[in-house]
């Protein structure tokens, strides 16, 4: 079981359509974002996306969050999400990394550990700790 303070995000490349020319462009997107309590509410992810990038020139995707031009921008968004949710870290896992891990693991605990260890973990060093955490840290 991953700690509730850790967020996991699986990202991949998805086709997005531009608002004006209706051109289809392949770009990075967040496919699934979850923590120990389950999937992160889509509204939280969408609102943050709008706050950070304003009105997109792309049509929103009904299923995924994006587009992100490159991995650096995607990671910046991930860090902002981690800060907003006051989580300790966020682990970014690409589709190909995910597939390699899932193929060899047979238990959920091993899968979660594999994702955490082999994904790219971004720490939230500015995380505010509550009184309880301060006492026990």
């Amino acid at each position: 079981m991953i700690e509730s303070e850790t967020i996991m995000a699986v990202y991949g490349q998805v086709n997005f359509t531009t608002q004006e020319s209706r051109k289809v462009v392949s770009s990075y997107a967040l496919l699934y974002v979850f923590d120990a309590n389950g999937n992160i509410d889509r509204d939280v992810l969408e609102n943050l996306y709008c706050d950070v990038y304003g009105d997109s020139s792309y049509l929103g995707h009904p299923l995924y969050i994006g587009p992100f031009e490159d991995l650096e921008i995607l990671n910046q968004y991930a860090f902002k999400l981690c800060s907003q949710l006051n989580a300790a870290d966020i682990t970014m896992v690409s589709v190909s990394e995910y597939n390699a891990i899932i193929e060899r693991e047979s238990k959920p605990s091993q899968l979660l550990l594999g994702l955490y260890e082999e994904g790219n973990t971004i720490k939230n060093l500015d995380r505010k700790k509550g009184l309880f955490s301060k006492i026990f840290s």
Binding site: V10, G12, Q13, V14, L31, Y64, V95, S96, Y98, N99, I102, E103, E105, S106, K107, P108, L111
Partner: peptide, 17 residues
Amino acid sequence: REGLAYSFLEGEDNLNK
């Protein structure tokens, strides 16, 4: 279609692909 390997958790806590 997202490119993710199909994976499932069955009742005995095993991951099936």
